[in-house]
């Protein structure tokens, strides 16, 4: 009886495991995740500078420019052959809205570059938050929630 139950559980779990594995093999999905990870790390780096945990104020603008470069890739990160993982199908159902949201992220990142170049901590903090919020706004609508 126990063996039969285990077999049923394994059979039920298999398709999901297989899908997850397939997602990991899809180079487009891996590329998307790599770019998103890069963006996230860029925020971490700037956060450390903003908190003065590292004494690298001049590198704020360097990181902001890197963010602004990479954020321009977002609009092209969702080709039809990259459906799956945590990206919700809505992304492919409303491409115009996705493009607008991606542009908002670009605009926010450009504003952060301007603020970082200027060097005023308060203005940088505001622009930093706005850039982060622009990312989160997309994630809320288009990304499956984390567990």
């Amino acid at each position: 009886m126990l063996i039969r139950l285990t077999a049923v559980c394994v059979a039920l779990a298999l398709p999901f495991g297989a899908i997850a594995h397939e997602n990991q093999k899809n180079p487009e999905i891996r590329y998307r995740h790599a770019i998103m990870e890069t963006l996230s790390n860029q925020f971490v780096a700037m956060g450390l500078i903003l908190q003065a945990k590292v004494d690298r104020p001049d590198e704020m603008a360097v990181n902001a420019r890197a963010l602004a470069e990479n954020v321009r890739l977002i609009a092209g990160l969702f080709p039809d052959n990259s459906k799956g993982a945590k990206a919700l199908p809505l992304i492919w159902d409303e491409p115009e809205k996705v493009a607008q949201a991606a542009q908002r992220a670009v605009d926010a990142a450009d504003a952060l570059v301007a603020a970082a170049t200027d060097g005023n901590r308060q203005a940088i903090a505001r622009a930093f938050k706005a850039a982060g919020d622009s990312c989160k706004g997309c994630h809320e609508r288009y990304k499956e929630a984390d567990d």
Partner: peptide, 24 residues
Amino acid sequence: LSDIEFYLELGMRPDGDFSSGGMA
């Protein structure tokens, strides 16, 4: 402590993710 203070100020978690939903 500083991670919490920074999160409360700008909404970024230590891993680079930003607050969402009601907490935002």
